[in-house]
Amino acid sequence: MVDKTVPLETLLAGETATISRIGGHGPNVHRLEEFGLRGGSRIRMFRTGNPCILALGGGKVCLRCDPELRILVERAADTPPPVTVPGRPSPFSRGGR
């Protein structure tokens, strides 16, 4: 079977994925796991970059990884890539108040 995991940074804004593996310094990985960022967690990239913003569970988290921390994710198959131009959606395109 083809390994479909990609680094977290490659996700585009609006894409949904499942975390497959977090590698790095043990205590740091554990810290992320306690926070709920662990293998099997479903996330949604809200804002790309470093730090990035992820939607997780019912909320959002801001995360800055150092180079030694690698988060591998698998893009959700059921969600097609976002239709809007990825990267930096216009702030007003979602029709805020």
């Binding site: 205590p27 740091n28 810290r31 992320l32 926070f35 960022l37 730090p51 913003i53 909320g59 959002k60 988290v61 801001c62 995360l63 800055r64 990884c65 150092d66 921390l69």
Partner: peptide
């Protein structure tokens, strides 16, 4: 430093 993790 540990990874910067902040709930919004």
């Amino acid at each position: 430093a540990p990874p910067f993790l902040l709930e919004l």
